[in-house]
Simulated assay, not measured.
Amino acid sequence: MKKRVLLVSDFHANVYGWRKEIIESMLSAGAEVALAVPYGEQLEYFREIGCKLFDVKLNRKSTGLANNFSLLNQYKVVLKQYKPDLALLYGSKGMLYTGYHCKRMGIPYFSNINGLGTVETMGFPIKQVILTLYKMVVPGATCVFFQNRYNMEKLEKIKLINKNYRLIPGSGVNTVKFKALPFPTNSETRFLFCARIMKEKGIVEFIEAARKLCSEGINAKFDVVGMYDDEFSEKLINDNKDILAFHGFQKDVIPFIENTNCVVLPSFYGEGISNSLLESAASARPIITTNMPGCRETVIDEKTGFIIEPQNSDSLYKAMKRLCKMSLVDQEKMGLAGREYISEKFSRDIVVKAYMEEYKKVFN
Rank of each mutant, 00 (worst) to 15 (best):
Y100D: 00
S280K: 01
I113Q: 00
L65T: 15
K235I: 06
F145P: 00
L167F: 08
T289H: 06
Q42I: 13
L167I: 13
E200Q: 14
L86C: 10
Y228P: 04
L88V: 12
T260F: 00
S9K: 01
V176W: 00
K199I: 07
C102A: 15
L53T: 04
V5R: 03
E358V: 15
K179P: 01
D230I: 00
Q250V: 12
A195S: 15
Y75N: 02
C324S: 11
T118F: 06
D55C: 14
D239H: 08
F178P: 00
G338Q: 06
F46V: 07
A284R: 00
Y150W: 13
A281E: 04
N291Q: 11
E279M: 03
A29C: 10
T118C: 03
G248Q: 14
M136V: 15
K321C: 09
L336E: 11
A36E: 07
V137P: 02
L88Y: 06
S70Q: 10
G94R: 04
V362M: 12
R196G: 13
E200R: 14
L236M: 06
Y150S: 07
N174S: 15
P38F: 06
G91T: 15
L316T: 06
G106Y: 10
R190A: 09
N259L: 11
R60E: 11
F110G: 04
V5C: 12
E205C: 11
S9M: 05
Q81A: 14
D223T: 13
Y75C: 04
S28G: 07
E48A: 11
A245P: 01
T118S: 15
P169V: 02
G226K: 06
Y45P: 02
V138M: 09
V253P: 02
F363I: 09
N73E: 12
D85N: 15
D242C: 11
N238G: 09
D230A: 03
R285L: 05
E200P: 03
E358S: 14
K135Y: 02
I273D: 00
E205R: 07
N67T: 15
R211M: 08
V138R: 03
K3G: 06
E200Y: 07
Y359V: 07
V351R: 01
G30W: 09
G40N: 12
E24V: 09
K159M: 10
T185F: 07
K321G: 08
A281C: 12
K76W: 13
A209N: 02
F246Q: 07
Y97C: 03
L79M: 14
H101N: 11
Y228I: 15
N364R: 13
L278D: 02
S28M: 07
C214F: 01
S233M: 10
L27F: 12
F178Q: 01
K80S: 14
Y355Q: 05
K360I: 06
I237F: 07
K303A: 09
V224W: 03
F346V: 02
N73C: 11
V77N: 14
F246H: 13
N67M: 11
K325W: 08
T175L: 03
K154Q: 10
I126E: 11
P184H: 07
I288P: 00
R19T: 05
A354Q: 10
A354E: 15
A245V: 14
Y16T: 02
K353A: 10
L89R: 01
L58K: 05
S327L: 06
K93A: 06
K212P: 00
F346M: 04
A282T: 08
T289D: 07
L86E: 04
R285S: 03
R285Y: 03
